[in-house]
Design a protein around this nucleic acid. Structure first.
Lengths: 340, 340
DNA sequence: GTGAAAGCGCTAACAC
DNA sequence: GTGTTAGCGCTTTCAC
């Protein structure tokens, strides 16, 4: 029996070396696929690894290489919001695909409290990850500040963080909102309102700004209902208020598809036909859109691509040890269906 | 200026010791909040840490302590499924809350391909995490096998993995399904069908088994439509087929709320009234349930608690270095609304 | 091609 | 209370 170690003790590279009758150095070379190793040695090491059940210690390796082989995806949202944001899932998929290809491990971290926030900063500083992708950070966010300060390779998805030259990637919410509002106007609507969710963050503000710009003179602040949440319930509740304020309303721009779905149900309940009486458009092109009756016209947000590109940017920074590159804005597309 | 290190080099504990005029040992004690340190020393160290901008290396620390302070949540699902599983989000929240309280970092890992799977095993073996919570693993899953083999503290959510005495936590899908089917029967339905999603996994199989058991003699295999997905689309498509097969159907048990929602929309479209003509019940008590019209009767699954308990089990195993405890089955509750 | 040896940054056991 | 020192398991020169 070559296994003389106790069950609780892991085999080390030295055990492998002894077993193979070689030195640690050679074993290390084999493990790292380095050149200048005889094929006999290579095979001997591989066999020895098997026999002693060796797995290398990430800590020891990372201590000397200063690399972990992992990248964090930080979801900085109160937990409730995360659940029904249709984009997060797709961003995650895109990011994971690209990192997986590069043999980096993606670890997703949720920040749900101040305590979380502090611990996450420790985690990042500790060197558990080589880079980070940050979703929907606020500008005054401590994690953002820490990342920038420590120079961790990173990409911010959603909006540029502060005035720093940090790399970011996002969509032009303002332009997209303007565009779809214009199309809504082109269908002949006269009294157009907005269910403006998330006005406490950039994306929400920008969508409202685009809406305002598109309407120009015809913009009526009374027809804007604000709500922090991008939810179905927010849409339903907002639509009630909008109808009470302006029963003659004939167009609605909802800040997200979920909001639009809530609004549409209320419209039906209040006896309004869509799109005959009221035209309605959403934002995201999420699963909600096709599920609506009639199907929802909306803005397609390239969430998956967002995730992929963010991952690429981080990988590039890690590889080149270069300074951050600038930002990137991905194009959106208006998807015209039957709701307007 | 006390900062003589290059910008690229991190300060080490030695730098702090020099700066504070103390030894590494004392600095380490302060850093770890150990007793037997004079308050002067403590303050001197804290000041020095500030000045040199010290952050301790996780790798070095973890190398000697054999602890990382992190726990993995492994979501072992094809990406598409993850997105609309209403339970995952809540499990995540519960897990994060408990771990956060214990100052452990939760890292969520998605397994989306064979390549992912292999990398994740490496990651776990490497010692990046002290424990793992595994969601909806299949029995033949390589990650499950690796975890069991390496003796990593772990808890499997959903179902016991193989015959091993691994710790797990879940709900009794079979009993819950049986219970709600019985209530459906009690409303006087004669021809009851099931939209049996996910029959390729334990939860789906168990729900079908419960349904079958409840119906007893009245069970008709022709009224069971199978579909791997727990989705709205699966429900819609399944309901079409069910209506075609048995136009006189008057009761439906859908394997999830999303499935039920899809089915209900088809019923409406085909001119059936709910619950007058057809009674329908779901499973999960997710956001779908109250959004249905009429609101859906369903089984409440304690997803958040599931996550909390799983985290506790893992923490306990980590702390005690004990062998795995057995499994735990949480109770479910039938929520009776208006759809049946 | 391979071995020997010097660390990576930290904790913990042991002196004092 | 504090300093000294021996590793933790690995990579990486530098000889040979």
């Amino acid at each position: 029996m070559s296994d003389v170690r106790s069950a609780r003790t892991r085999a080390t590279i030295q055990d492998v070396a002894d077993e193979a009758g070689l030195s640690r150095g050679t074993v290390s070379r084999v493990l790292n696929d380095e050149p200048y190793v005889s094929s006999e040695a290579r095979e001997a090491v591989q066999a020895a690894v098997r026999r002693v059940g060796y797995v290398r210690s990430a800590a020891a390796r990372s201590l000397v290489t200063r690399r972990s082989g992992a990248v964090a995806l930080i979801v900085h949202e109160p937990s409730v919001v995360v659940l029904d944001d249709p984009n997060i899932g797709n961003i995650l998929i895109g990011t994971n695909a690209v990192l997986s290809e590069a043999d980096q491990q993606l670890v997703t971290i949720m920040v749900d409290s101040t305590r979380d926030s502090e611990r996450v900063i420790e985690y990042l500083r500790g060197g558990f990850v080589d880079g980070a992708i940050v979703l929907s950070a606020r500008n005054d966010d401590p994690i953002t500040r820490a990342i920038v300060a420590m120079g961790l390779p990173a990409c911010f998805v959603g909006h540029p963080p502060e005035a720093t030259a940090a790399s970011f990637i996002g969509i032009d919410n303002r332009a997209a909102a303007e565009q779809i509002t214009e199309r809504l106007m082109a269908t002949g609507r006269r009294r157009i309102g907005m269910l403006a969710s998330g006005t406490d963050r950039d994306s929400g503000q920008d969508r409202l700004a685009g809406f305002t710009a598109a309407l120009g003179e015809r913009f009526d602040p009374d027809l804007v209902i604000r709500n922090p949440l991008f939810s179905y319930a927010a849409g339903a509740e907002g639509m009630q208020r909008l109808l009470d304020r302006a029963p003659d309303i004939d167009g609605v721009f909802a800040a997200s598809d979920a909001v639009a779905a809530g609004a549409m149900d209320v419209l039906h309940r209040r006896g309004r036909r869509v799109p005959e009486d009221v035209g309605i458009v959403g934002f995201d092109d999420s699963a909600w859109a096709i599920r609506c009756d009639p199907p929802l016209s909306t803005v397609r947000q390239p969430a998956r691509t967002l995730g992929e590109q963010a991952a690429r940017q981080v990988l590039e920074q890690i590889a080149s040890e270069s300074e951050r590159t600038g930002g990137l804005i991905l194009p959106t597309e208006v998807i015209w269906r039957e709701s307007a």
